[in-house]
Design a protein around this nucleic acid. Structure first.
Lengths: 345, 345
DNA sequence: CCCTATTCTTAACACGTGTAAAAAACGTCT
DNA sequence: AGACGTTTTTTACACGTGTTAAGAATAGGG
């Protein structure tokens, strides 16, 4: 049990009788060392307690094998799913992921970016914060590292790679579905915490106009930026339902979390949203939040292909990693949303 | 815009005419340097682009200012809330948090622990994986670092600090409430992904016995360890409701996510759980999952004080950090749960 | 103006590992 | 036995910053 603790490769070298450079090569890639040495080292390591120093190993390598990921907040299963798919993809590719959460604070986001630069990460993937973000941060990262933005794309930022959902397609898809199967939807906006909020609004509007219908957007009045989407959806619709407004409407919510609040508002007013009674209240969302299929009624929505987005972001990053000087013409990958018809609309 | 990029302190020293050791001290603590020098350095830094190398700075310090956190999975808002409170507490105390997610895999958990040791983190906080975890990992960390376990406590592990909820109290509280207000509850178990699953089961059983009632535990048959709690609750109760079993029961679910699945099962069978009709179906959970208050009906539950647990874990860690050789008599902090009476029970 | 206390610079070594070049050891083949 | 190719050891320097000890510069006080 009480293996002797060895703190440096030099000591280890002395302890098991293999030269330090050979040990160094062994830890980086055992196949670069002859079988007899590998065996000798392996046996030696069983006798002692030794862990290579992380900092010392990374300091001199041209590549650190780490990629940095920033997500805006943790208390949202969409981002945790995204993060998970990124971690898995990165792990498969042999990279270590360093995650930082900006907690909705541009200052923390900027600090996280500096940390990545200071750690010499090989590349960075960022899900932007939103309007509050300092675009300089992204430009800075992009100019110094292989860099990919995901999920949400700043309008006035150019030359940066992006992977996300095609909101024109996804929002258009469900807008069209709602219109076709029941009445044309009104759009329950979400707090403008990121650029997708606006993109979906605009996608809704243009699809409605394309269909020759009048777009109606509600929920702009109570935009608490705290990310309490459910409370937002509940508050807005409770307000309208109290006045008898929209009780027979098709309501397209900017995302599923808002829709969950909307379902709650309906319940509080004795309304039963669903596609069963034609002409009645219907509620739909966007994202296919993991809990949506368990809601009552189950929530009709458009699924984002989170898995593919994460994988594509990592793939693109690694692609940029491999080339020396990235001529990098900008790449924008937009994934299609998939309609999930359930009970609520 | 195009500030000259400076890569070492030496270069910086030459560029702004301040000696390297002074710069070193400046970056560690500006107050250790005279005002005039601070001003000179500050002005200099505005002219050039320089970021201290993270690895080089950490390598020689006795303290790295980092604490490692391991959580079992990401796709659960309970753990993300816990993680968030830890990050905030650590940030307030001036520490950098390195987060690793074990993705329900003991091997990844063990690797994460090695990474922490190799990075010389000042301390580590871990939410254990469960029965599959290798206890040696925790003992190893505990013997080499200031170390605190949280949320869930391995039964056969001794001498390790712990912060979590007192499940005897919390589960007892809601068991008693359910018994008092309606019928005595049956317990819908959750997959044994961690030690809390068992603790809650046992707490339920002993409280029932204390009340002179017969404990009934269901849901042991379909324990998929994948952490799909909602699907588990739904599958188990769908099965029973189909046979007409438990349709008028009080059902205490091992956690809120299971309860969300239970609510869904009730809905599918036309059942309306709630406290309104005495003697009818009632469903309750545990944890106060962020979405519970938006469920239909709103979910009665016991809230864990996530905020306090995270803060206490960090506080205890820092306490251990400060003393040289921790005599450390073991500390176990158990927080009380708080009853949240809502509509479902 | 000088004296003393503070702060800085200089010079040097340290941290633990990566890496390269040259010399040595080893194995295999003729 | 000799020659050759592979692998290892030896030796040395590198990475960027922490840290220390000595001496030099500076500031404040008389």
């Amino acid at each position: 049990m009480a293996k002797p603790e060895i703190h440096t490769m030099e000591e280890l070298s002395a302890a098991i009788g293999v030269s330090r450079p050979t040990l160094s090569r062994y830890f980086q890639d055992p196949t670069k060392v002859s079988k007899s040495s590998v065996e000798r080292i392996r046996r030696g390591l069983e006798q002692v307690e030794y862990i290579p120093n992380f900092f010392a190993t990374r300091m001199n390598r041209k590549t650190t094998g780490m990629i940095g990921v920033i997500i805006p907040y943790l208390n949202d299963l969409f981002f945790t799913r995204l993060l998970e798919s990124i971690e898995r993809a990165a792990m498969r590719a042999g990279y270590t992921v360093i995650t930082q959460c900006s907690h909705s604070d541009p200052e923390i986001e900027a600090r996280a970016a500096e940390t990545f630069l200071s750690m010499n990460v090989d590349g960075a993937v960022v899900a932007p914060l939103g309007n509050h973000s300092d675009l300089n941060v992204y430009e800075r990262l992009n100019s110094r590292l292989p860099f990919v933005l995901m999920d949400s794309r700043p309008a006035r930022l150019s030359g940066v790679d992006f992977v996300g959902t095609d909101h024109v397609q996804s929002t258009g898809l469900i807008t069209e579905y709602l219109t076709r199967v029941g009445g044309p939807p009104v759009f329950l906006a979400m707090p403008r915490v990121n650029f997708n909020a606006l993109e979906r609004e605009m996608a809704y509007t243009s699809k409605m106009q394309e269909l020759g219908l009048e777009p109606t957007i509600i929920g702009m009045e109570s935009l608490n930026a705290e990310g309490h989407f459910e409370a937002h959806g509940l508050a807005v619709l409770d307000h309208y339902f109290s006045k008898g407004d929209f009780i027979n409407a098709s309501i397209l919510c900017a995302n599923d979390r808002v829709a969950i609040g909307a379902l709650r508002a309906a319940a509080q007013h004795g309304l039963e949203p669903g596609t069963l009674r034609r002409g009645g209240l219907r509620i739909a969302g966007h994202d296919d939040y993991p809990l949506s299929e368990f809601m009552i009624p189950t929530l009709t929505t458009v699924a984002q292909n989170v898995q593919a987005i994460g994988q594509a972001a990592v793939d693109r990053l690694i692609e940029k990693l491999r080339v020396e000087k990235p001529q990098s013409n900008q790449t924008v990958q937009l994934m299609d949303g998939v309609l999930k018809v359930r009970q609520s609309a």
